[in-house]
């Protein structure tokens, strides 16, 4: 397991531990999703994209995640809280602090 994969798994655990998060959606484009479906049909197996993205850019590390949240609590509150938890987790992981943490709420309820 690479360092990035380890961090991805660690962050995914933190996010899914939040009781207001229902799911982490794979980070992929629609075209990629269609391509994966075709490839999956040809090879008779499912393709699974990473559930969150950690990228190294010239400006620093960026983290992106797309989530579905439950409707009980305000989606905005959950979204902000996840940002803070990801930042805290990366700080404790003693990796370079990200320049950007993107959290997208893709479904509610």
């Amino acid at each position: 397991m690479t360092a990035t994969a380890t961090l991805q798994a660690r962050l995914a655990t933190v996010i899914l531990a939040d009781p207001d998060v229902r799911i982490i959606y794979p980070t992929q484009s629609t075209l990629r999703a269609i391509g994966d479906r075709i490839a999956g049909a040809v090879n008779d197996r499912e393709f699974q994209s990473p559930i969150l993205t950690i990228a190294e850019t010239s400006e620093g590390t960026t983290v992106s995640v797309s989530i579905g949240v439950r409707a009980e609590r305000a989606a905005t509150t959950v979204c902000r809280r996840l940002h803070d938890r990801i930042a805290d987790e990366m700080a404790t992981a003693t990796v370079a602090l990200p320049v950007s943490i993107a959290v997208k709420v893709a479904s509610i309820g």
């Binding site: 989606a75 602090l97 943490i101 997208k104 709420v105």
Partner: peptide, 11 residues
């Protein structure tokens, strides 16, 4: 660091 969004579809 925060880039927080919600999709129009979710809304």
């Amino acid at each position: 660091t925060a880039h927080l969004t919600m999709t129009e579809g979710a809304v």
